[in-house]
Design a protein around this nucleic acid. Structure first.
Lengths: 191, 191
DNA sequence: TATAAAAACGAACGTTCGTACTTTTTTGAG
DNA sequence: CTCAAAAAAGTACGAACGTTCGTTTTTATA
């Protein structure tokens, strides 16, 4: 890997941390340059626009997310086992990012801001929901679940969102007890 | 009501629309002045700082929210009836605001931005969750529900969050069918 | 080691924003 | 109608931001 790509990866790693801790719009080229020890224009040269930087941050986040949440289950043969492990990794991912998920915050941040970033965020969320649906549907086909797979995913994702918000206001604890409680009730209801 | 207060109310109404359609931070003094037909400094004089403007927008939103969601149930004597009507009004509020809730977006926007605004947003959300819990608890005391009232509210609020996000990506329809489906399953599970 | 390309730098520009002043206009009570 | 107070306007400033451009330094290959 050449020097350029190497620096870029390092910038993206830092940028993801900053964007997760604040927001994708609060990500500033000058600020990011200071943190990474580069000059403003030196950093800028890697992306040629702020929007490109933001898009690349999202793609970088996606690659980490895939490694942390999707990859671990790739060799499992039971869909139900896949599903349960995925949810566990999903929570771990969220915690590893400092108790906030960039995909959730960007969804809210860009839901009224048309453009390339919104398009990407929306597409990724749709893909993720479809992936979960597929998992649930396969589990159903294998006789481990019954009912509407999409409705199941709707409720599962809702709980994921709710858990994050409510940890923030102290209505949910850091171990996501209420989430897990609701999850087992949800699973029970669908089997 | 003097001229000053009258203008201020009009500014706040417009500001709430803008903040709901974009975000509380994207609310701009110059932009808001243009929309309301005032000069930048003329509008500024009503608030003396952007943060004050934002705080007053939140309080204005709260007053509307109270009228639309809490007031309608004030004369009901069955807690369960109150609860169901509240949820219905809650959905209507969300729709009346152009399918986005300023309390939800500000919660995400300011969850990592300490200050007076974050404090207010957090307090209001806590109050709302407590209010819902109180409703559920009273319904339980009246024999119309059983189980953990807080857990019930956790799941209810999660569904509210989820419904909004998933309307956005087309995983939920505008009539909130999945929300209502999940809601009745939730209620059934708790009675 | 020579050398062209890649990477990084430094300074500047145009714009947007919040805010501070002063001045003008409008309001409403006596 | 008067006139002080309130409301609104006009102008200006400083800071932060994304971006451009010319230059310098570093990298990596032949």
């Amino acid at each position: 890997m050449g020097k350029g790509k190497q620096t870029k990866q390092q910038i993206l790693a830092t940028a993801l941390n900053v964007a997760t801790a604040t927001s994708l719009n609060d990500l500033t080229i000058g600020g990011l340059a200071t943190i990474t020890g580069l000059s403003k224009s030196g950093l800028f040269g890697h992306f040629n626009s702020k929007e490109n930087l933001q898009l690349e941050v999202l793609e970088y986040a996606q690659s980490i997310f895939t490694d942390a949440v999707i990859q671990p289950t790739v060799n499992m043969n039971s869909a139900m086992e896949k599903l349960l492990t995925t949810v566990e990794c999903w929570l771990n991912w969220y915690r590893s990012q400092g108790s906030s998920c960039i995909f959730v915050s960007t969804s809210v941040e860009f839901d009224d801001q048309p453009g390339a970033i919104q398009d990407l965020v929306k597409k990724r969320l749709q893909q993720w929901l479809e992936y979960l649906t597929q998992l649930a549907q396969t589990a159903a086909n294998e006789g481990q679940m019954k009912g509407d797979a999409r409705q199941f995913v709707f409720e599962l994702y809702s709980l994921y969102l709710g858990s994050q918000q409510m940890v923030w206001v102290g209505f949910e604890d850091e171990q996501h007890t209420r989430f897990k409680c609701a999850l087992s009730a949800l699973i029970q209801r669908y089997q």
